[in-house]
Simulated scan of single mutants.
Amino acid sequence: MEQIDFVTVEEQQRPRKRGGSQAVTEKTSAKKSPRQGAAREGYRRLTADIPADLHKRLKMQALMEDRSVTELIVQAAESFLRNRD
């Protein structure tokens, strides 16, 4: 299968820097930033399989409230646990 690269006309006309991706790798490794996809400081990543329709409803609600799905789930979990005590 052939790989297709989507590049704008401006990107095609822009001169390329010599050194390629190696220069980018050296710059990013010097910053010592956290791994991509890693949980923020003080947080833990949680993975759960949920029904597709529930996921869609969560995303729609988050969009309507201008919040993230994470914020909705954290609020729901805190409310659930508070009511259990």
Rank of each mutant, 00 (worst) to 15 (best):
K27C: 01
I4H: 13
A38V: 11
A77Y: 01
I4G: 02
K56D: 13
K27Y: 11
S68T: 14
R16C: 01
A48W: 11
E10I: 06
G37V: 00
T70I: 04
R45W: 08
D53W: 07
R84P: 00
T25C: 00
R84D: 09
A52I: 03
E41R: 08
V74D: 03
K32N: 05
K56P: 01
Q13D: 11
A48C: 10
F80D: 00
I50Y: 03
Q12S: 04
E65N: 14
D85W: 06
T70N: 15
T47V: 04
T28H: 07
M60W: 06
R45V: 07
K31N: 10
M64S: 14
R18Y: 04
V9P: 09
F6T: 13
D85N: 12
L54T: 14
Q36W: 04
R44S: 12
G37I: 00
V24G: 04
D5T: 02
I4V: 15
L63W: 07
S29G: 08
A62M: 09
L72W: 00
R44Q: 12
A39E: 12
A23E: 07
H55G: 14
A48Y: 02
K31R: 15
D66F: 10
T28W: 08
M60G: 02
P15W: 00
V7L: 12
R16Y: 03
V7I: 15
A48G: 03
G20V: 01
L54H: 10
K59M: 14
A38M: 04
R16K: 09
D49V: 07
F6E: 09
A77G: 04
D5R: 13
I4M: 13
K59I: 08
K31H: 08
R57G: 07
V7H: 03
R44N: 03
G20D: 05
M64L: 13
D66Q: 14
D66I: 02
K31Q: 13
A62L: 09
T8A: 11
P15F: 01
T25N: 00
R18D: 10
L46K: 00
E78Y: 04
Q61F: 09
Q22M: 11
R40Y: 07
R40Q: 14
M1P: 11
I73M: 01
M60C: 06
E41N: 08
R67A: 15
D5N: 07
R82K: 14
K27L: 11
R67Y: 07
V7G: 09
D5F: 11
M60N: 12
D66S: 12
H55M: 08
R67I: 09
E26R: 11
N83L: 12
R45C: 04
Q36F: 05
R82D: 13
